[in-house]
């Protein structure tokens, strides 16, 4: 008995962590399991096992159209947000200049503003300028709220760089451009990649701002929200599960590459 309590108190934090991760993953496991459900109408009760949903992910009406829009918007928003955000991060991380604190506030504000306020205010502006909401207004909105997260992520990476590496390059007669291209950029690249991944997942997953500024363009989260009222088709679970698996593979692969490169060094 005494031994048992001792084992418990020694492993308390591990047991706790196990429970924590179970809690985090429970809805994902549920989504994954029910992607194999042989249901026709609503995916609420387990009917039986089938591969059909995975073989035919576009089987439900409109789901692949919504997914395609989400992917297109995600790629475009990620590209522009990463580009603009990275440039800003270099300015913030590398230069002293006047107006720095104002820029800091401007970057912080979108992260401190609830999504509904940003979505609503953007819609107000689009309407008052006679702009019809649609595909491009979604892209614009997504770039806007992703920029700050990109700046913060890339800036953290720049701040953690050892300045001696760049000094060494300069000592070895590399000019500024060469130093940037051959030393600084490769060192910051993992931060930029992480920022891009973050931007894509923020964009792909966004519902509130999108719902305000999308007009009648459908996105995947919008599809889930609308069809949740009358029962979600299992194809939505297939898409959610595969996005999850793909992202997990990308991240684990990135870690693997990072570890190997660190090992080589």
């Amino acid at each position: 008995m005494n031994q048992l309590t001792r084992w418990f108190s020694r492993n308390l934090i591990r047991i706790y962590a196990f429970l924590g991760f179970t809690y985090l993953f429970l809805p994902i496991i549920y989504t994954f399991v029910f992607s194999f459900n042989n249901s026709t109408k609503s995916n609420l009760v387990w009917v039986g096992f089938t591969w059909n949903n995975w073989l035919n992910p576009c089987g439900a009406p409109d789901v692949c159209n919504a997914l395609g829009n989400s992917l297109k918007i995600g790629v475009l928003a990620t590209f522009f947000a990463t580009l603009l955000g990275t440039l800003m991060a270099f300015a913030m991380g590398r230069y002293a200049f006047r107006g720095r604190s104002i820029v800091n506030i401007l970057i912080f504000l979108p992260m401190a503003t609830p999504e509904i306020v940003m979505g609503a205010s953007l819609l107000t502006m689009f309407i008052s300028f006679g702009f019809n909401p649609g595909f491009w207004t979604i892209v614009i909105a997504h770039v806007m709220f992703c920029i700050s997260f990109v700046v913060v992520t890339v800036k953290a990476r720049i701040a953690s760089l050892d300045p001696r590496l760049e000094q060494a390059a300069m000592d070895l007669y590399a000019d500024e451009r060469q130093t940037f291209r051959r030393v600084t950029l490769p060192l910051v690249a993992p931060g930029i990649a992480a920022a891009a991944l973050l931007a894509f997942s923020l964009s792909f997953d966004d519902f509130i701002i999108t719902n305000f500024n999308s007009g009648d363009v459908n996105t995947f989260p919008k599809f889930v929200y609308i069809s949740a009222q009358r029962g979600l088709p299992p194809q939505a679970n297939v898409i959610g599960s595969s996005m999850f698996l793909i992202a997990l593979i990308i991240v684990l692969f990135g870690q693997f590459v990072g570890r190997r490169r660190a090992g080589v060094r």
Partner: peptide
């Protein structure tokens, strides 16, 4: 990782 599975899907 849970981030990668849609926020709405998880809530549903």
């Amino acid at each position: 990782a849970p981030f990668f599975c849609s926020f709405l899907l998880r809530t549903v």
